[in-house]
């Protein structure tokens, strides 16, 4: 466990930088995390992040890649284009959510 500073706030994260306190997340923070991992956020990225956060809020678990496509309407190809080399992990990190633990 570690504490990181994002937009002037102290936030608890795990060793890999995933949020332990999703409620402290904000759009500003998302931009900061994205910059850290080399992603410039666009409308398309934000659509994915919003889906992840909303789905997590209503279901209590992180969606799979399949669910992002089926329920979120975001194509797998686009996910890999937006978040190259580890789409679900990167998107979850930017969204201030836990590290995905599913194999799918």
């Amino acid at each position: 466990m570690a504490v990181k500073m994002y937009s002037g706030k102290e936030i608890e994260v795990n060793d890999e930088g995933y949020f332990l306190e999703p409620d402290k997340w904000s759009g500003e923070i998302a931009t900061e995390i994205a910059t850290e991992i080399g992603i410039v956020l666009t409308e398309e990225h934000i659509k994915v992040i919003d889906f992840l956060r909303n789905d997590f809020k209503s279901k209590g678990s992180l969606p799979t890649m399949r669910r992002i496509k089926k329920v979120g309407g975001i194509q797998t190809k686009d996910l890999y284009r937006l978040f190259p080399e580890g789409p679900l992990k990167k998107a979850c990190k930017i969204a201030g959510l836990a590290k995905p633990a599913s194999c799918i």
Binding site: T64, M65, R66, Q75, T76, K77, Y80, S102, I104
Partner: peptide
Amino acid sequence: ELDIPPIPEFIEMIHDAG
């Protein structure tokens, strides 16, 4: 139930993933 797709969809998903 675990969101593991049927084989044809899975092949498509892997291909879409590069």
